[in-house]
Nucleic acid binder design. Structure first.
Lengths: 198, 198
DNA sequence: TGCAAAACATACCAAATGGTATTTTTTATG
DNA sequence: CATAAAAAATACCATTTGGTATGTTTTGCA
């Protein structure tokens, strides 16, 4: 019954949310357990009651917070897409400019974690890879539908396009840390051109 | 005279090179000074004789090693470009697949540092921003020349293209950490299509 | 109401961290 | 060769780190 607002479930969730905030801003390794318990007002005993160690907490944070949150923003908007170029663009426009939780200075939490942890930890790699894989499938699917319905050229390779779009997203999140939101807009303008030409 | 193989200059350079290796693989914050002196066989006294602190060492590493190294690979090949689409593609193909110092698992050292340090440290941000700015200028310049010589359409916005290409690079470096070199090739195939259509 | 298990609190610890203070060795130069 | 400055080595330190051991309190339920 942990998931229906039991007191203990609340504590666990609060730890994950505060940890997410800190990790988003400072990175996973640079966020100490002491930092987390300081901002949550939860004691170390409580922390280690809910999580075996820091790594397990990080994985829970990915699987229980980041994964569903990102799927909602990146994948779900594409599922009922009619005009592929338009829908892919809107999804990107939305995630870059309309997500109040995200700050251009700190980039994308998922991209950040991949950058930091994928080479260091197999389990982080897998958990984050699953998310990106679902995103890739969703984009590929939309493009494929576009080919069928005739709005996308037959010569287009949907998997290549998906990779290209995803790389653009990760990369502009990186550049945004240096250049601010202005570069998001420059990127989006070219993305629109690119998609319309497919 | 520090720069012409004086003994002290050698020590300093060796510290920077070993630090670069470690930072590339583990990140800046996760690389301790003890790690660096352990792999260099240099003592802590020597380290702090050459660098005021860890931050200054990191900046020296960027300015004296990474910056010139990256300029050589990213910018210089573009300076004498004839066919823009071809030359931009070749530059990218080369940096992604032909640089023996880089490992797909660990991505690009410059991109990694931006991701980790740009939000946390103004000076790192500036030093790395300078590098990306020069890259952007070089790409824009090539595209602009292509418009003049007629190989690139007039409707193309060279700055937008530069941002798009750079974002793609940063992003595929990120994805490569999860997916390996295969995704580099997928990305490059679509990049070629994109450039040829400009 | 009693009581075991769940949830949380407190106090502690060894190792690692960035950095300093001090001493020794090496080097260039008069 | 003498010597001062540069370069490097040694020993130390306060703080932070992830984690444990051992309590105490709260909760569900027979």
């Amino acid at each position: 019954m942990v998931f229906f607002m039991s007191k203990a479930g609340d504590t666990r969730l609060m730890i994950l949310q505060k940890a997410f905030d800190l990790v988003y801003k400072h990175g996973f390794q640079a966020t100490s357990i002491d930092d987390i318990i300081a901002t949550t007002q939860v004691t170390k005993g409580a922390f280690f009651y809910h999580f075996k160690n820091k790594e397990e907490m990080g994985l829970a944070m990915i699987n229980e917070l980041m994964y569903p949150g990102m799927i909602k923003v990146l994948v779900e908007p594409l599922l009922a897409a009619q005009d592929p170029a338009k829908e892919v663009y809107l999804m990107m426009h939305n995630v870059l400019l309309k997500q109040p939780m995200f700050n251009v200075k700190y980039g994308c939490p998922a991209v950040n974690l991949i950058e930091e942890m994928a080479p260091l930890n197999q389990q982080f790699n897998q958990a984050l890879g699953k998310l990106f894989n679902e995103w890739q499938n969703a984009i590929s699917q939309v493009i494929k539908q576009g080919k069928i319905s005739g709005t996308i050229k037959d010569s287009v390779d949907e998997k290549q396009v998906a990779y290209f779009v995803m790389a653009g997203y990760s990369g502009i999140r990186n550049m945004g840390k240096m250049l601010g939101t202005a570069c998001y807009k420059t990127y989006l303008a070219e993305l629109k051109k690119y998609l319309n030409q497919l």
